[in-house]
Simulated scan of single mutants.
Amino acid sequence: MEVFAAYLESIDNPQHRARTEEVLDWVTKEFPTLMPVMKWNQPMFTDHGTYIIGFSTAKHHLAVAPEKAGIIHFSVEIVQAGYEHSQQLVRFLWDRPVDFSLLKKMIEYNISDKADCSTFWRK
């Protein structure tokens, strides 16, 4: 989590900082083989040099970005869980609990789907 320390410190709202830290810590513990990295000023996790999932903070939500393929694959579940999404990210509202089971599925999907991927992003 050291790699994310400066990012977390830059989050002014203490509740948003705590939630973001909770999620990043959960990913680190749940998926210890993923590499935590900062790219484009955002915390991300990679596997064998390929992007798995990234996060960023906004005024009303924590943005979770499993790439477009992850959004498409889980679109119905995302909506059923009560989240909104765009083509590139899911909005986890600050005032609602995080659906860690959905987050786990998205990460597991990307790890599996990108097992043979040799680039950072899907092509």
Score class of each variant (00 low, 15 high):
D47Q: 13
D99S: 03
E30D: 15
M38G: 01
A18V: 02
P66L: 02
A69S: 10
I107N: 05
E2P: 01
A63V: 02
F92M: 15
M1R: 07
V64A: 08
S101F: 09
K39D: 04
V76Y: 12
S10P: 00
R122G: 10
F74R: 03
K114F: 13
Q88S: 15
F74S: 10
R17P: 07
D113I: 08
W40N: 11
V98G: 08
M106L: 03
F120M: 06
P36Y: 00
P66Y: 03
E30S: 15
V27K: 09
V3F: 05
P43K: 09
R122W: 15
V90N: 00
V64Q: 08
I107C: 06
F55K: 01
A5G: 07
S112C: 06
V37T: 13
D99I: 01
G70T: 06
T33W: 04
G70A: 04
P43E: 03
I52L: 07
Q15W: 04
A58M: 03
A81N: 00
Y83D: 00
H16L: 06
T28R: 12
S86A: 11
T28F: 11
H73R: 14
D116I: 09
M44K: 12
A65P: 02
W26M: 07
N13E: 09
K123P: 10
T46D: 11
E84F: 08
